[in-house]
């Protein structure tokens, strides 16, 4: 295509401003990157970049603070909701969100996530559920599927020995302090679009002061699942969605009626 021809074209999509210029350390095809991008797009679209403070977790997304062009802090493992609470309580007019994986949020940080929701803390949580511990090399997570092989469940998760996966969204939706709790998936374009809309509504929940908001995102880990990036997306659709149904578990009426 000639340059002249390109100049007559409309720009449809470019890297969002709220992402930093850094190259992520994520493995090729890891959907953490998609989740980052969607969060950055929503922050851009809502004009929140200069008032947002993110809270990074421990896990694969430990370096999230390098990847966003917003202020960021790095929490201890599982403690991001507590740290976010401290920030939000002293700076209530800022947009505060945590970005946490399943080990961080649903295992070591279980108390913090339940109580931040119970308090109706006006923050947003982006919860990446990929059913495995990525950073430490593929151990069993609280969301690992029954029968799923990991380095710490080498014969497949035996529910008799190590219990069942935890459905965080369903549990958190029982909290009166929660304003918006949904589960989405990142395994194909249609679901990614829905995920983005959910992230938008979660941040809208916070901006409208309607309490705790969380978007759980079914995400892939091609490296530790030992499949190709595209096969990993198929795994989400075939195996994760049946265990973790994609649904709206709690939506504040004001958000249900919101046009975005």
């Amino acid at each position: 295509m000639m340059l002249a021809e390109k100049q007559t074209m409309d720009l449809i999509y470019q890297r969002p401003e709220s992402l930093s210029d850094a190259i992520t350390h994520y493995c090729p095809g890891c959907t953490h990157g998609i989740a980052h991008r969607l969060v950055a797009e929503v922050i851009d679209e809502m004009g929140l970049r200069e008032k947002t403070i993110g809270v990074a977790p421990v896990g694969c997304s430990v370096f999230a603070y390098n990847y966003f062009n917003t202020d960021y802090v790095e929490a201890a493992h599982g403690r991001a909701p507590a740290m976010a609470t401290g920030i939000k309580r002293v700076l209530p007019d800022r947009t505060v969100y945590t970005y946490q994986g399943d080990g961080d949020l649903a295992s070591i940080g279980m108390a913090e996530i339940m109580h931040v929701a119970a308090r109706g803390e006006n923050i947003t949580v982006i919860f990446i559920n990929n059913a495995i511990y990525g950073m430490t090399g593929g151990q069993m997570a609280p969301t690992t599927l029954p029968g799923m092989r990991t380095t710490s469940s080498p014969n497949g998760r035996d529910v008799e020995l190590s219990g069942y996966p935890i459905r965080m969204s369903e549990m958190l939706a029982t909290m009166d302090g929660a304003g918006y709790i949904v589960r989405r998936s990142l395994h194909n374009p249609a679901n990614i679009r829905k995920a983005k809309k959910a992230i938008r509504l979660a941040f809208e929940t916070q901006e409208h002061g309607l309490g705790f908001s969380m978007v759980e995102l079914l995400s892939s880990c091609p490296t530790n699942w030992k499949v190709t990036p595209n096969e990993a997306l198929t795994f989400i659709a075939d195996h994760m969605v049946p265990v973790f149904p994609l649904d709206d578990f709690k939506v504040h009426p004001a958000i249900a009626n919101l046009k975005v």
């Binding site: 409309d10 959907t31 990157g33 991008r37």
Partner: peptide, 22 residues
Amino acid sequence: TGCNICAIVCPDAAITVYREAR
């Protein structure tokens, strides 16, 4: 067609999409 699907699935925000001006 500049449908943007590639950019939607790209985990690294590596793709810029253009489409013929209407």
